[in-house]
């Protein structure tokens, strides 16, 4: 293992990738595990990185795949054990917050996760990439394997969805703080 690569990746990207995984999983312990997997894949394949994309988008692509691999395996495992979970129609939040998930919450985070949970998977990814990770449209397209047009269209719908959800929450809340 090349420790110099680890140290550089850690200094430049660690917290960003960690946050990305938190936004997807809402679970600190799981995010730590998945981040470990990201490092393993990065450190094993860094020599093969050809620079066709930026290092940043390459890392986020790996992180996204690691997370999605985990979700799909988890959903198959849950189906096999007869727990009802349909990845296509349900969102992880449907099963309620575990103590680990609750550990990353505060008021704003609660609202953020509610917004993310009620978006489609595509909308969620765009909100995370564009606003929370502050990637450009081009970078977002590269990470997700989309066209820039699709990023823009999805972003528009995602923001509209977020607005509906936030206005609804505020209406239920009955006032500001």
């Amino acid at each position: 293992m090349d420790e110099s690569v680890f140290h550089r990746i850690y200094e430049e990207y660690h917290q960003d990738v960690y946050r990305f995984l938190i936004y997807l999983t809402k679970d600190r312990m799981l995010s730590e595990d998945l981040l470990h997997e990201v490092y393993v894949r990065v450190l094993k394949s860094f020599g093969n990185f050809q620079g066709k994309s930026s290092e940043r988008t390459w890392l986020f692509s790996i992180a996204r795949n690691v997370a999605f691999d985990h979700f799909r395996r988890s959903s198959v495992r849950r189906k096999r054990t007869d727990e009802s979970f349909d990845w296509e129609t349900e969102q992880p939040a449907d099963r309620g917050l575990t103590p680990e998930e609750a550990a990353v919450h505060g008021d704003d985070m609660d609202r953020l996760f509610k917004v993310l949970d009620d978006c489609t998977e595509d909308q969620r990814m765009v909100l995370i990439m564009r606003f929370l990770q502050e990637l450009s449209i081009a970078e977002t397209a590269e990470v997700l394997g989309w066209t820039e047009a699709k990023v823009k269209t999805t972003q528009h719908r995602a923001v509209k969805k977020a607005r509906e959800l936030l206005e609804g929450m505020d209406g239920w809340g009955g006032g500001g703080r």
Binding site: H7, Y10, H14, Q15, Y18, R19, I22, R28, S31, E32, L35, V104, G106, D108, M109, R111, L112, L127, F131, L132, E134, V159, A162, R163, L166, E167, M169, D170, G171, G173, G175, G176, R177
Partner: peptide
């Protein structure tokens, strides 16, 4: 922040202003 109506710009600002979770583990 809580309000009755949000415009796109405000939503963008709010998303960017949400406190960012940190990994507090040591590098070592």
């Amino acid at each position: 922040m809580s309000k009755d109506k949000w415009n796109d710009e405000e939503i963008g600002h709010w998303l960017k202003s949400v406190p960012k979770p940190e990994d507090n583990r040591s590098r070592d």
